[in-house]
């Protein structure tokens, strides 16, 4: 007898494997990897005698940080036009350009050509202008042409610090809503051409008090002030305060006062202290609708000028009538309605 034993075995599974070769590519990111770090370039330029024009050329080709370029430029004698060429074609940080100009004798015309092409921050330009020896007239066409509403004080601050051509300032102010007070503060500090300031004021609602404060501080031509006052709504009191201080020509003042409702009381106060021609005062009063009572207050004050002779004043007060005033040899006034006298 025998035993048949059938044994089954299992050795798991048969191994199987397949490999696949996959191709790939990755280009060398040349542009990205070698993207010029301009800050680094600037740092280099500061430490050696680089050709800044080369730096400019590099900057033009990429989005540069102009601040970095400025930093570089400050450390060496640069050709400013090169920097201008850069700023002209990109959105530069104008403040950076300005800070650059401060540190050297930049060619401000180049800066101007930049500013004309963009909405420059004129404060920055002004700060720049204060430090170098610039041609400030260049500032004029900038301000006229830039679209930014500039604080005029900024230009003013610049002008105080140098011998400027006020005409340039005028040209600027005409083109925008300037703050004339700034102009005044400028003009006080130098031998301004007041006619230019006058021309400026005519073009806008100037604050004549500011102009007056200018005139007080220098020997100005009042006729210019007069021609100025005509088209603008001025405070005649301010003009008077000017006239009192300086040796004004009252004819000019008369010309000013005539077409407007001047406060003749103020004019009277003026007459009391100024060396005037009374006929001129009369002409003023005649043209303006002044109350005669006010004029009466003037007469005693000016009597010293007319003693020994007679003065006749005519005043057109209202439609109601005309008055004649007579000062006799005794210094007394006589007043009649016009129907009582023969003019």
């Amino acid at each position: 007898m025998s035993l048949l034993l059938l044994l089954r075995t299992a050795a798991g599974g048969t191994p199987v494997a397949q490999s696949y070769v996959l191709n790939l590519e990755a280009l060398g990111g040349i542009a990205a990897a070698r993207a010029l770090n301009l800050e680094a370039l600037a740092a280099i330029a500061q430490g050696r005698g680089t050709n800044l024009e080369a730096l400019s050329t590099a900057a033009q080709a990429r989005e540069l940080a102009l601040e970095a370029l400025s930093t570089a430029a400050q450390g060496r004698v640069l050709v400013f036009e090169a920097l201008a060429g850069i700023a002209g074609i990109r959105v530069a940080t104008f403040e950076a350009l300005a800070s650059l100009a401060q540190g050297r004798a930049g060619n401000i015309e180049a800066l101007a050509s930049i500013a004309q092409g963009r909405g420059a921050n004129l404060e920055a330009l002004a700060i720049a202008a204060q430090a170098p020896t610039i041609n400030l007239e260049a500032l004029g066409p900038i301000a006229v042409n830039v679209l930014a509403v500039i604080p005029f004080e900024a230009v003013g601050d610049a002008r105080v610090a140098r011998v400027l051509g006020i005409e340039a300032l005028t040209g600027i102010a005409q083109g925008r809503g300037a703050n004339l007070e700034a102009n005044a503060s400028v003009a006080q500090g130098r031998a301004a051409n007041i006619e230019a300031a006058g021309y400026l004021t005519q073009a806008r609602s100037g604050n004549i008090e500011a102009l007056a404060s200018i005139a007080q501080a220098r020997d100005f031509n009042l006729e210019a002030l007069a021609s100025l006052q005509r088209p603008v709504a001025i405070s005649i009191e301010a003009l008077l305060s000017v006239t009192r201080t300086v040796g004004g020509t009252i004819e000019a003042l008369a010309t000013i006062a005539a077409p407007r409702g001047a406060g003749i009381e103020s004019l009277a106060a003026l007459a009391g202290t100024a060396t005037l021609r009374l006929e001129a005062l009369a002409a003023i009063a005649r043209a303006a609708g002044v109350p005669f009572e006010a004029m009466q207050g003037i007469i005693p004050a000016v009597i010293v000028n007319i003693i020994e002779r007679l003065a006749l004043f005519q005043f057109q007060l209202t439609e109601a009538g005309r008055f004649a005033n007579r000062l006799d040899e005794d210094g007394n006034f006589a007043q009649r309605r016009d129907e009582d006298i023969d003019f």
Binding site: V16, A17, Q18, Y20, L22, E25, G28
Partner: peptide, 24 residues
Amino acid sequence: AEMVRGAGAAAIKNTFTVELSGTT
């Protein structure tokens, strides 16, 4: 497949091999 390229790494044209294995 994750491919890492270092900063500014040079260009490559290459392969990688993946194996699927098991038992049957």
